[in-house]
Design a protein around this nucleic acid. Structure first.
Lengths: 193, 193
DNA sequence: GTTTACAGACCAACTGTTCTGTTTTTATGA
DNA sequence: TCATAAAAACAGAACAGTTGGTCTGTAAAC
């Protein structure tokens, strides 16, 4: 039931935005009663926060296949965009991040989790890729930059002059990252603690 | 009066977000009557759209001083962040862009203007800076990337592990851009049409 | 005297939240 | 094993507050 509610919330956030994501809309989308939502999530912030946590859990894995060689940097950037950021879940996360900026209650519920997700996400990168400088901190900086660029691109997407231009931007950025970041040689792969 | 209303709207968007930016709040912030707002802006979308147009007009100039040499690329990136994106107006714009994604009425009002602003903004860059490849399209791609990164950074700002880390990201990104973009030699400066 | 600029009351619709019921599950104890 | 109590899961009505938008009234400008 909680899964069903959160899935409906993701759809609402993606299609309607945070402001229009109301109990009534989520209820209708999930095809359940009002009481079911309020029982599990007493406030709107609790609902959105729980949805965010669920999304973060799902957004961790798909980029780095287990027991297989990490994909090239160029492909990594491209699939991060296509499979994570520019997906219903990714767009929902952006809505939530924006809401966090001005909603202290929501921010308080998510701050710690988001910080921890950030940290673990960066260590996943460090375990598989390394900056051309060989510096681990620099690897994480580069990945942080990439994530922020992709999120920013989501806001601009509807105003991009043409779909091809968006492709060009992605290609240009991926090539730039490719020159700064590289796959770790196999024998150097560290285990994520 | 319209200026006063729009300024109050910017403050509300920045501090309260799009959802909480209501006629009542703008009215109170501007210290005027309800009728004054609804007279000039019949709908909320019209109010926000007019505010966005005003913001875009103001965000055009400050980066490139007239009749003086363009600042170095590193400084350009830094001041774009500090003076444009991470300002009340910049944050308000991001709120509006996010709202546009899911509000068709608002999107319709702003689509054309935003596309035009985008175009003129890119041509301002091309008039003063050039990609290391010498390609004008590449110059614009690089600037588009920079803008999207900065906007994305705004969403992440509250969750960055420490203020210093944000500084490091900015520094790293600015240095990366510095290696790809350069100030146009003076005699090559084209006039903006 | 007609249009524009503002003031403020008004309204139906919707918001998040609380509340009281009903059903289902789970735990308990002999 | 099974009655039974307690808790959790759900359903849906109710509510006060707020929303965007409209409507009438008045003052000023042209």
């Amino acid at each position: 039931m909680q899964v069903k509610i959160c899935n409906a919330t993701v759809t609402c956030l993606d299609q309607l935005g945070y402001a229009e994501t109301t109990f009534a809309k989520v209820q209708a989308k999930a095809g359940i009663s009002r009481g079911a939502i309020t029982h599990h999530f007493p406030t709107k912030q609790a609902l959105v926060a729980a949805t965010a946590m669920r999304l973060l859990g799902n957004a961790q894995n798909p980029l780095w296949p287990h027991n297989r060689a990490p994909q090239p940097v160029y492909d990594l950037i491209m699939s991060a965009w296509a499979n994570i950021v520019n997906s219903a879940g990714g767009r929902a996360i952006v809505e939530i991040l924006v809401a966090c900026r001005t909603d202290p209650a929501l921010f308080g519920m998510l701050e710690q989790s988001l910080r921890e997700w950030d940290k673990s996400n960066l260590s996943l990168i460090s375990a598989r890729y390394v900056s051309a400088t060989g510096n681990r901190d620099d690897t994480e900086l580069l990945w942080s930059i990439a994530r922020n660029f992709l999120r920013g691109l989501l806001l601009h997407e509807k105003f991009v002059s043409s779909p091809e231009y968006l492709t060009q931007m992605m290609d240009r950025f991926a090539r730039m990252m490719e020159s700064q970041l590289q796959v770790l040689p196999e024998n150097d792969v560290e285990e994520v603690e």
